[in-house]
């Protein structure tokens, strides 16, 4: 089964920041695997190093120690990663379509060839007809959807999402979760999703990595065996709540 193959192996990854007050351990020895086409969430309290972990995986900062192992023949960490940030981070001076095509320009690929794909992706995220708009003509939720299309444009194998819906209201957020699952199911990507909303993580994921507060340790690696496609009704199931409770217990919430 291809799905069981590993895309990314994280081994004893550690990050220590040197500050004026001394050393600050942002991420303490984390190890887990991410399979191909798997949806893995990372949950934990603020400041537990979730964002740090994502930035290390994206190559935006070096780790202090530990390893990131990838199958180089299958996966190039420079080109095959798409990153959705907490903020939409659209460039004000580019129209929606040109924002989506930004990674193509940076990777020096043939922009013309990717225009049809950009249009398809905009349709996929429900923004057909908005390609000529400027970002400040769109609402927050629409902007974040543009940023998802942008993260998918260069057909990356791994999508890193760092609390992408944190700034949205609860209703929009719920809608976006459904859209995300639909996009994930259609595009067959691997997703690594950071959140501090436990029920959101249970709803979306195949597996949840639980990180404790600083100095952060990995305190859980929970398989979520709810059938797909996920539905709102599942949130009422005892299993759903047991998963959530299990994670709360691992985080020592009393």
């Amino acid at each position: 089964m291809e799905e069981k193959k590993t895309l990314l192996s994280i081994r004893d990854l550690k990050k220590v920041y040197t500050t004026r007050e001394g050393e600050l351990e942002a991420l303490g020895s984390v190890s887990f695997d991410v399979g191909r086409q798997e949806f893995v969430s990372i949950v934990g309290p603020s400041g537990c190093g979730k964002t740090t972990l994502m930035r290390i995986i994206a190559g935006l900062m070096p780790q202090t120690s530990g390893e990131l192992i990838v199958d180089k023949d299958y996966f190039d960490p420079q080109k095959d990663v798409g990153f959705v940030f907490q903020k939409a981070l659209l460039l004000d001076w580019r129209r929606v379509i040109d924002n989506v095509l930004l990674p193509i320009e940076i990777l020096k690929l043939d922009k013309k060839k990717y225009i049809p794909r950009a249009m398809e992706l905009l349709e996929l995220v429900g923004l057909k007809g908005f390609e000529k708009c400027y970002p400040n003509e769109l609402s927050g939720g629409m902007q974040q959807r543009v940023s998802i299309a942008r993260a998918l444009i260069h057909d990356p194998k791994l999508i890193l999402m760092d609390e992408p819906f944190g700034a949205l209201d609860a209703i929009t957020r719920e809608k976006m979760n459904f859209e995300l699952l639909r996009i994930w199911a259609e595009s067959k990507k691997t997703v690594l999703f950071v959140t501090h909303e436990i029920s959101e993580a249970v709803f979306l994921s195949d597996r949840i990595i639980v990180l404790s507060a600083r100095p952060s340790k990995m305190v859980g690696n929970v398989e979520i065996e709810l059938p797909r496609p996920r539905t709102l009704e599942q949130k009422l199931l005892p299993e759903f709540n047991r998963y959530a409770l299990d994670i709360y217990n691992k985080l020592e919430v009393k």
Partner: peptide, 23 residues
Amino acid sequence: NLLDLVNYLGASKRQVFMKIRIP
């Protein structure tokens, strides 16, 4: 964060200027 946006894709200094800094 805008710099992260292009740096994770390995943007060159020239690209950062042309695509981000100058606009």
